[in-house]
Amino acid sequence: MIRAPLAVATLFALTVTAALAYEPIIAKPGEYVTVKPAQQSIHVLASAGQTDGELGIIIIEGKTGEGPGPAITHAKEAESWYVLEGTFDFHIGDETFEAGPGTFVSVDAGQAHGFNNKTDGKLLVIFNPGGYEQFFADWAEQGLERGPALGALENTYGVTRPPRP
């Protein structure tokens, strides 16, 4: 089931009561870490280390045809996306829909999800709790291509994929 956003009054009440868990983060272009696994550029705006484990925030720049595909599941992280540029096909459970700039999508841990770039594009991605952003750095450092070796790395981060038919 896809839910509508909270009312503004409810959202405001939630944000003003939150306690500070980490120091402010300012991520200016050119000052954050960028890693390049496969054909993508991943810009790490905030890491679990910076947010006391609460969040990981990245921007994914991908080419047409890129993306994790229709179904992966994170064991512990909720994941949220905001489309900055381009067009994507999102897969949430059994639903597939097209999303362009300004679209927001969010899933909880354990929910099957994925996306594919229909065009070159950019996504703002938030992981809660943080930590999964390190996956992209490990992927780039190890120079892995998509396939069994990347699947083994995904497994170390608690990501599973359904068996292929």
Rank of each mutant, 00 (worst) to 15 (best):
E145A: 11
W139G: 05
I92Y: 05
D108K: 15
W81I: 02
Y32N: 08
E77W: 02
S41L: 10
T51Q: 06
G86S: 11
K28R: 15
W139N: 02
E133R: 01
P29E: 13
L6Q: 13
N128Q: 15
R164K: 08
V16F: 12
N116P: 00
V107S: 03
L55F: 15
G114Q: 06
A75M: 04
F115M: 02
T34M: 14
G62I: 09
G93V: 02
N155Y: 07
L124V: 05
T15K: 13
Y132P: 03
R161S: 13
R3C: 03
A7S: 12
I72M: 02
V125F: 13
L11F: 11
G100F: 04
L123V: 01
D108W: 05
G93T: 03
G86Q: 06
A112P: 14
P148E: 06
L144D: 03
A75S: 11
E79W: 03
H74I: 01
T64E: 15
A140I: 01
T15Q: 07
V107K: 03
K118H: 05
L123F: 01
E133Q: 11
Y132L: 04
A19Y: 03
A109T: 02
P148Q: 03
L6C: 00
F90D: 02
P68W: 10
T160L: 06
Q142M: 10
T64K: 15
